[in-house]
């Protein structure tokens, strides 16, 4: 195994590890709010759950990049590509983008979703608006994802 591969795998660590940490925190923050609202209004469970799920996407994006890197370096097919150190570092950079972007955007989105869930508790018909407010944050995770995808696809 070359040093390049090791760097590429560190990219996977950053992408999956950081983005999933962010999602876990975000979903957790939103979940606390959701539990609070559901204790008063169990009938809003579905609406709260949708909002709670929103910060979960960053983890998925992280996994997606991690998977693309693993596939690109041949880890999944078993035939490892002979990566140079520079190529490995480039993969690591790709992983870092969604990792960092996902980490912070998921936490911010979790807070917005939590506020949205409180809003649903008072105005149950406005869950659509609450979802949209949380989606405004999601944009930046998608942009990070996009940059990561483009780098991953163009390294080799």
């Amino acid at each position: 195994m070359s040093l390049g591969i090791v760097f590429a795998l560190l990219g996977v660590v950053l992408a999956v590890g950081l983005a999933c940490t962010g999602s876990a925190k975000g979903v957790g923050i939103a979940g606390e709010s959701a539990a609070g609202v559901c204790s008063e209004h169990p009938e809003y469970f579905g609406k709260c759950l949708v909002l709670q799920a929103l910060p979960g996407t960053q983890g998925i994006y992280g996994l997606l990049i991690g998977f693309m890197i693993m596939r690109a370096v041949g880890l999944l097919s078993g035939a490892l590509v002979d990566l140079s150190v520079y190529q490995g570092l480039a993969f690591m950079a790709a992983g870092a983008i969604i990792g960092i972007g996902g980490l912070f955007s998921a936490i911010a989105q979790g807070k917005t979703a939590a506020a949205g869930i409180s809003m649903v508790g008072v105005q149950s018909n406005e869950s659509g608006k609450a979802i949209l407010m949380a989606i405004m944050v999601e944009t930046y995770a998608v942009l990070s994802l996009l940059a990561s995808i483009l780098i991953t696809l163009y390294v080799l």
Binding site: I60, Y61, M68, L146
Partner: peptide
């Protein structure tokens, strides 16, 4: 560009 990002997400997942 989210059209691209979201579209790709579905396929890769």
């Amino acid at each position: 560009s989210r059209l691209f990002g979201m579209g790709l997400t579905t396929g890769v997942i």
